[in-house]
Design a protein around this nucleic acid. Sequence first.
DNA 1: CTGAAAGCGCTAACAC
DNA 2: GTGTTAGCGCTTTCAG
Lengths: 333, 333
Amino acid sequence: MSVTIKKIAEHSGMSVPSVSQILNHKGLYRQETRDKVLASARKLGYRPNAAARSTRMGEFGAVALLISTDPQRSTLPNGMLRGILTGLGDRDLQLQVTMLPDEKLTSEGFVPRILTQSMSDGLLINYTDHIPEKMIELIREHHVPSIWLNARLERDCVMPDDIDAGRRAAEHLLAMGHRRIVYVDYSASGHYSSDDRYVGYAAAMAQAGLAARRLGGVDGLDRRIAQSRALLGEADRPTAIVSYGGGSSNPICHAAVDMGLRIPDDLSIVHFGGRPAVHFADKLFTTMTVPEEQMGHEAVAMLTRRITQPSNRLDSLSITYDFELGATCAPPS
Amino acid sequence: MSVTIKKIAEHSGMSVPSVSQILNHKGLYRQETRDKVLASARKLGYRPNAAARSTRMGEFGAVALLISTDPQRSTLPNGMLRGILTGLGDRDLQLQVTMLPDEKLTSEGFVPRILTQSMSDGLLINYTDHIPEKMIELIREHHVPSIWLNARLERDCVMPDDIDAGRRAAEHLLAMGHRRIVYVDYSASGHYSSDDRYVGYAAAMAQAGLAARRLGGVDGLDRRIAQSRALLGEADRPTAIVSYGGGSSNPICHAAVDMGLRIPDDLSIVHFGGRPAVHFADKLFTTMTVPEEQMGHEAVAMLTRRITQPSNRLDSLSITYDFELGATCAPPS
DNA sequence: CTGAAAGCGCTAACAC
DNA sequence: GTGTTAGCGCTTTCAG
């Protein structure tokens, strides 16, 4: 059926090992013989069998990306995917993608094949949700080099620097002269970034001698708008918002517009988000942009280091956010 | 280094093939022996080597997903990924993801390994951009079962039914009593869906004895808003819009709000989009939702059929959009 | 310069 | 019931 080295050997009148050598640019063969073999290979449409090669070489030439099953949220940020794919491409590695069941739906004890078999040279684990303890144990036992993304671990982990980002977001507004700045977070994920961004924001506020304040914890768009409206209706209403993300900015913006407050003239907003940055009406949000692509890239770099030196655990890497200047911030009126 | 069947054989005092048989629940061995072998396997932490198994079996247990490199747009719709991943999971297949260079950046003639080597049992090709002719040729020559997504081919292809969706979007508005309905499309992708959605819309308009009208072809958010504003400022301004997608709805909505037109009271909008549906202010867009997950699922089903019966080319599959009733449509005032 | 021999980890067929 | 033999496609080593 398929074209093997053996067929090329027969076709070109050479031995199997010779063909292998020539196809891999090894050995000291006459140019004439090389050409003959290469011609046969091309003519027959030869494609090396990766599995056989892996078997022989003892490596797979592939790494796996484990993502959690989350019906709602974006499970695989495209920037990160791009970063990973280009990073792997440079090293001639393939990417295998597997969904990891999260804590809730692990009832039936399903374990993905990637953890029960040996089929990749390393693991990239995008830890956005709650992976069952059992899975984490399995990953440990697997003894395959692993790098975690978006987790908060001492070693072998790549994460965005949310504290720094929170601080810089607040500092941007403080530098413009804002004093009453509130942190709004309507996400309900429980991810550590929620707290970290607040911590950074609060640190900047403290340094400026100002009180920090955090809003959120309300479910449903209507109730979020109502809460935002209450905030903006206060006597000493805030002049600026640090918003956890798009889902938090929307209720705030809608409430503001509804109350006749203009953005950015009457209310400034900095928020966090992925690429590409989003708009509010015709205005680009001033955004602390998650360095997704770079995270993917760095994760691959770390993983390949761990693959070549399996014993060396690596210090985790914090990646700073990009700051994207939009049109949703102005000095307070 | 790693635990092989051979080590289990030594540890349990059995032969290599016997261990293999027992691990694969084959042969007629005594329960006692089975237990002995399984115990050894567990104790040593055995993980079957997938590459060796593939070599022996002549199949890879994996399919590849080819996506195009597009820095801007979402290259891998998450719904589709989910559909593919769950579909493959049911058949115990792995997913390999590869980026395919698009027409423009193929100058250097880079060919991904997935096309030069034999390393998957089939290909899923998400054809959103312009893949170089040379790549398509290579895919043909590869002789590996392939299914195309989002392309418009007679065979071996899964696509959403854009014509039907365009028609249904218009019909929804017509049924509410709208007569002046305009199709707005600010996408610049040149994807066939642009035209197909219009064709469906136009067909519904024609059937109602009304004139179809198409707006778009303008670049930059400001100019789009300006054009939208002009449209809504006309004497016989439209009372409803069928919008190609979020990027087209935004300028329209912004212009409407700015001109004091309320949505949906003064202007109704139906648009096309992925999941989850998006909001305009506090209102969910009435949306024709791309059946991403189902497309992924069906594509896998078709691909596995082609893998088991390689000669049988399959008729392409059109998948109907889901209709999601939002709050952006109302009868004309 | 080239080919014979050996082996990667695994499985199918067939002895005994 | 279990072990022997053979072989998947490929690469490495080494003899000639």
